[in-house]
């Protein structure tokens, strides 16, 4: 990893000094050794402050949207970040030529509090970036795993158990919307929950309103979710947010062969398109 960090610093400095990019988005040291924070480097001499270690927990893709209009921006992307970038291109939020992608194969990040590998990384099946302009470090082998393990447990529950489970999840939700803020596919300028005049989302914080938010969010992002797991990591209440997203992904794949989002920039919205061959078992 220190090799990657060294090369990253050199390349960032080169890219900035040559004027190829106006900014490099990566990570820098946090207050503690086991913590990093997103970094936005605009001067070649600051490239030395870039950090890449096992505590680079934030995904970078969403930050590239904040910098639109500055000029071409270099973004450090691992598998999760690169899929987010692809999806943002599909969703017309970003143009491919607006970003220079520094690909970094990833071996998983650690939870600062426990020192264990993050859940999102344990469930990750794309550790290598799926799109990049240059690659730093050696490709890593992709783990074999069943990312629907937890979904299958959920499906095995009976209705009462499932209802109780969701109640227990959403009674803890504080509707801070951190999940939305970090999500690379939540790119609306104005979220439905903020449109108070239309009144889609009630202001009260209770199980019913929280569930309404959670379920609507799944419908809004589930068909495009790139499974970066950032929502779950960002959640201050440790809610299992990827569970419902993955249930949606699994069902859409079963019904519409939707596949996995963000593997290229050509994706569609399975919930927003109609094909005469679509299953219509409810008709």
């Amino acid at each position: 990893m220190s090799d990657i960090q060294t090369t990253l610093r050199t390349r960032a400095a080169e890219l900035l000094s040559s004027g190829e990019v106006v900014e490099v988005i990566g990570w820098t040291a946090g207050r503690f050794d086991n913590q990093t924070t997103p970094a936005f480097i605009t001067k070649a001499e600051d490239a030395e402050s870039l950090v890449f270690n096992e505590y680079c927990v934030n995904t970078t893709s969403k930050f590239s949207l904040m910098e639109r209009g500055l000029g071409k921006v270099a973004v450090c992307v691992r598998g999760c970040d690169s899929r987010g970038i692809n999806r943002m291109i599909t969703d017309n939020q970003l143009k491919r030529e607006e970003v220079h992608l520094i690909g970094i194969p990833c071996t998983g990040m650690k939870d600062r509090k426990t020192g264990e590998e993050l859940l999102k990384c344990r469930e990750c099946s794309y550790r290598n970036p799926v799109v990049y302009d240059e690659l730093i470090g050696e490709s890593v082998t992709e783990p074999e795993l069943n990312r629907f393990d937890a979904v299958e447990k959920l499906e095995a529950m009976d209705q009462a158990e499932r209802a109780a489970f969701f109640d227990s999840v959403y009674e803890r939700c504080i509707r801070c919307y951190a999940c939305r803020e970090v999500c690379p596919v939540c790119t609306c300028k104005s979220c439905f929950v903020d449109q108070l005049a239309a009144g889609w989302q009630g202001k009260r914080s209770n199980v019913a309103e929280n569930k309404f938010y959670g379920l609507t969010r799944v419908f809004h992002v589930g068909d495009r979710c790139v499974e970066c797991g950032e929502c779950q990591r960002a959640c201050p209440m440790d809610l299992p947010l990827m569970l419902l997203n993955r249930k949606m992904i699994k069902d859409l794949d079963l019904l519409f062969e939707a596949g996995e989002a963000g593997l290229d920039a050509e994706g569609t919205n399975p919930l927003g398109t109609y094909d005469v061959n679509d299953v219509e078992e409810f008709m």
Partner: peptide
């Protein structure tokens, strides 16, 4: 236009090709 983020979901779903970006 103040709310539209240009994702194009409407373009894909319109059965009359009435919407463009």
């Amino acid at each position: 236009p103040a709310i539209c983020n240009g994702c194009g979901a409407c373009v894909a779903i319109c059965p009359y090709q009435a919407i463009t970006l």
